[in-house]
Simulated scan of single mutants.
Amino acid sequence: MLHHVLLASPPDSEAASRAYYADLLGLTEIPKPPALAARGGCWFRGPGYELHLGIESEFRPARKAHPAIRVPDLDALAERLAAAGHQVRIDDELPGFRRFYADDPHGNRLEFVQPIEEEWPLGDGLIVRRARAAEVGTIIALLRDDPLGRNREADASDEAGYADAFVQIDRDPNQLLAVVEDEGRIVGTCQLTFIAGLSRRGALRMIIEAVRVAAELRGRGLGGRLIGWAIERARERGAGLVQLTTDKSRVDAHRFYERLGFVASHEGMKLQLEPRS
């Protein structure tokens, strides 16, 4: 697992580094250990990685060697950099990704990439795809649109925790937060989690959570098609078990999952943890 990437920067360049990496790219500056702080430079943290800027007295920018940073919205970042006067160089030669190159304020080459979204047809013009950061509010609205969800979920506009959680989910290769799209409108969602374990002879299992369909489309078979799509993703990954939990009060949901072949084989238990003060 990669912990951090180190880039060189010229003496007295910390202010320019902070303006670029923190203000423009949105990375979080982290303090350097006291023993290293006297050397100058800046350290930053992004989703799942750290990027360190170290001072070199005889600095020369890295024009070829570079880090590639995965971002959730390549177009928005390109617009932000261009508006700040940083040239963006588009390059579409990497299969499966959109990308561009840009230079940091010291001339170091950086690559920014975004995976090309895979789409799965559900029929009737509906598609399933990976959720985007801008859709978190719409997904939370779907989660809130039932008696249990209204008590559990907050208004997404009031909760920074939802945005933070999306970043964690989106960067995890064992998580897939999916949405169902109907002509540009989000009408369904679910979250898939793949878990490796030693039990059942080391079988990979997939958990289905947070299944929701827009109220006006319920009862039309969309939920069944969405679960069928999820099961196919489990087969593709070689999972030996698909499991889910459903609240004991959701009697209709129990019947729905039983019709799809799920068996109520276990008693589920949960322990609610309160935040530490």
Rank of each mutant, 00 (worst) to 15 (best):
N151T: 13
T138P: 01
R233G: 03
L74G: 09
Q272M: 15
L36S: 13
E117S: 07
G161Q: 00
D145G: 06
G161C: 02
L177Q: 14
R109Y: 06
P31L: 02
G46N: 02
M206Y: 05
E58A: 07
V179R: 04
P275H: 00
Q87F: 15
I30Q: 12
I69D: 04
F112K: 07
L217P: 07
P11C: 04
K270Y: 08
V242H: 03
D124C: 05
L27I: 02
F256I: 01
V128E: 09
R200V: 11
I55S: 02
A83Q: 10
H106M: 06
G184Q: 09
R99F: 01
A8H: 05
H266T: 15
L260D: 01
I116Y: 12
E79L: 12
D92C: 06
G219R: 03
R220C: 02
R185H: 10
V187H: 00
A131W: 02
R132S: 04
L74I: 15
F59G: 01
G137K: 00
D155L: 15
V242F: 01
A19V: 00
R150G: 15
E111M: 10
P147Y: 01
R218S: 05
Q191E: 15
A38Q: 14
E50G: 09
P121A: 08
I169W: 06
A253S: 08
L110T: 05
P95G: 05
G125N: 02
A134C: 11
G224H: 01
E119A: 13
P173D: 00
G46Y: 00
M269F: 15
L36E: 09
G85D: 08
A22R: 14
L217G: 09
P34S: 02
S199H: 07
L24Q: 07
P72H: 04
L6A: 12
L36R: 08
A215T: 15
G123P: 00
L94G: 01
G219P: 00
N151A: 08
A37S: 13
G261L: 03
